[in-house]
């Protein structure tokens, strides 16, 4: 799988609270953002673990996968037509967050906050890329939207079971007693694979 991290400047600006209509800025600061995007990309060490799990049963209340049971109406609805699901964890590693900490303590908060936004965008793009590639690889399926523990009413402590199932420690992803993921720029979640109607 080719995991190109193509950072979208627009998205980085959005994380930084840039408002297309109202924000007035100068070249200097935009140049700084672009520089940090370039630097940020070099600090991304993508990690991925996933499992494709068939849906054994979905009664609208809970979804039974081959290795996991999810009791959640919203997810049951999300996976209504799914034949299989992809359970995943993606991360960009901890190098970028170390650099952010260093920049803050070196008195460079501007670069630090930009780099943080680059990191958020990087893990998002990585996850998008992974979703697209894995879906394509799986066959004649289309993906459902992604869902992650902590969104809506899917409790964040579900992460524990997901990480264990995926052996996420092998790519350096850990969870604290308070359910915090580390590295910080890590995404866990699920999406469904729905067979395309025309079979192609």
């Amino acid at each position: 799988m080719k995991l190109d991290i193509n950072i979208r400047e627009k998205e980085v600006l959005r994380y930084l609270k840039y408002d297309l209509d109202r924000t007035k800025t100068d070249d200097k600061i935009i140049r700084l953002v672009r520089e940090q995007i370039k630097i940020g990309v070099t600090l991304v060490y993508p990690g991925l673990k996933y499992k494709i799990l068939p849906v054994l049963d979905n009664n609208g209340e809970k979804v039974k996968l081959s290795a996991l049971v999810i009791k959640n109406k919203n997810i049951a609805r999300l996976l209504k037509d799914a034949e299989k699901t992809v359970l995943f964890v993606t991360t960009i590693g901890s190098a970028l967050e170390k650099e952010i900490n260093r920049l803050f303590s070196a008195g460079e908060p501007t670069k630090a906050v930009i780099l943080d936004a680059v990191g958020s965008e990087a893990v998002e793009v990585l996850t998008d890329t992974v979703q697209e590639a894995l879906t394509q690889q799986a066959g004649p399926y289309r993906p459902t939207p992604r869902f992650s523990p902590g969104y809506g009413d899917w409790p964040v402590n579900e992460n524990k079971a997901i990480l264990r199932l995926l052996a996420a420690q092998t790519i350096g992803v850990k969870m604290s007693a308070q359910c915090m993921l580390s590295p910080q720029k890590t995404v866990t979640g699920i999406w469904g694979l729905v067979r395309k109607a025309d079979g192609r």
Partner: peptide, 10 residues
């Protein structure tokens, strides 16, 4: 929102 976060930090 006339300034965004990097300007605040700068």
């Amino acid at each position: 929102r006339e300034y965004f976060l990097p300007q605040l930090m700068m």
